[in-house]
Design a protein around this nucleic acid. Sequence first.
RNA 1: GGCCCCAUCGUCUAGCGGUCUAGGAUGUCACCCUUUCAAGGUGAAGACACGGGUUCGAGUCCCGUUGGGGCUACCA
Length: 492
Amino acid sequence: MRTRFAPSPTGSLHIGGLRTALFNWLFARHHNGAFILRIEDTDQKRFDPTALDTLMEALRWAGLQWDEGPEVGGAYGPYVQSERVALYQQWAKWLVENDKAYYCYCSSERLQQVNKEKEARKEPPGYDRRCRDLTPEQRAAYEAQGITPVIRFKMPLDGQTVVRDAIRGESVFDNANQQDAVLLKSDGFPTYHLAVVVDDHFMEISHVMRAIEWFPSFPLHVQLWQAFGWEMPVHAHLPVMLNPNGKGKMSKRNPPRDKYGNLIPVMVHDYIRAGYLPEAMTNFLANIGWNFGDEREFFTMDEAIQRFDLARVNPANSAFPVEKLDWLNGEHIRALPTDELARRLRTVLVDAGFAVDDDLLRRVTPLVQMRLKTLNEIISLAGFFFRDEFLPAPPEELIQEKMDAQNTCRALERAYEALSTLDDFSHAAQEAVLRPLTEELGLKPRQLFGALRVAVTGQRVATPLFETNEILGKDVVLKRIKTASQSLVCQP
RNA sequence: GGCCCCAUCGUCUAGCGGUCUAGGAUGUCACCCUUUCAAGGUGAAGACACGGGUUCGAGUCCCGUUGGGGCUACCA
């Protein structure tokens, strides 16, 4: 079994592209086959020299290593279409010689004119096939004018094309509705239609899994395979991922938003930057349009490989379920060994400009592990551990529910006294003196501990108080409590 | 507009003629736990788009309607 992912390098990798790549990869791995990366860079106008690296980086991040393709090579190369142009030209010519295709000399101006007229007559747009049956004399006349022709496919004028998709079965298209598509452009480069058939054939691809957007050109491809007389691989068209509201497919134009109106990313790199785990991302994507087979939705890619099967691919399009991504990311964060999580958090902190003490990070990590939905949340939740300078909260933040400045100040002073007596500053030792203090002061634990948390961390929402204090150390903690109580101007 | 694809809780899905008074997950809400926030536990609300067939029997098969989506380039 051989599958391929064949993106065009026009920018960073689209999240939908990653899903397509993932399904191809899972299928190949399940069957112990090969997963091939092929670069479809036949559109010179949209060429972006940095895109290929970005694309490969995204695939590697997701763990989708390819067995053949750029950088790794393989027996069916080259794997970049711009390096295969001679092959496409050769086979385009073969089609012309065998009366399956023809040279077309029409200018794009004429094509536009034809479409304008068709539109006026309320006819569907399309080429009028003027060059389909040119005499040798007519051709010679055009050639004499120095016009570089394109090569168009001779689509059968009548009859039907039956296509077979592994996910939805057979569909029938009337040939009369089809176009004589351009196969070879006047710049000598192939269009997608020619290149995909030639490459899938010579690269011996056994299963083509691609986006449903290709379905309308499927009859053309089927006719091309037949014209060449080559055996066609199994084709499966994957459903599209729609915006979370179900309106239109995910794209940069038509930016997707979650139910609160927040923009959600479309590009893989934006998810990387946002602190999502590759384990979560692939797990999430595998659950869209495919399912594990039992009721589990949380699984590893090794487990998915064991079970991956085209029969469980759902033909229906789906809205992008963003909330599940956050949930799954949290689950994967919790499933990580603590030192591994620390390693990944380190990158986030360093990127945010913190000087990271690894010993400190190792102690903080267990406190945040069950609280993070994304790695980036470490900054807002526990960034205070790593900041050089302490940023105290405004004094009013110290005052808890049903308390006032006076009793808050008093409580902080009493806590200061209690903690300063401790030689052992472990969280257990702190709790042993602070919990009785709540009763003595007639406060609820949430009131006293809440005030202390704000005093010590500078935030209302933070890591658990005693464990946090233990890491910060007695000196720092006492100093911050004093600062806090002084900010409240207590009455004696 | 034309061609094509699709249709189960808000969302992702299970269901491949009888086991469906439709299962799971997420999200929402409530309660429990609780030092904040999480995590965890318990529970609640929540769907077979509609109309015809076929069949002893339809969420499951067929047709139509409606709705949604995709495509309609010398882009992929």
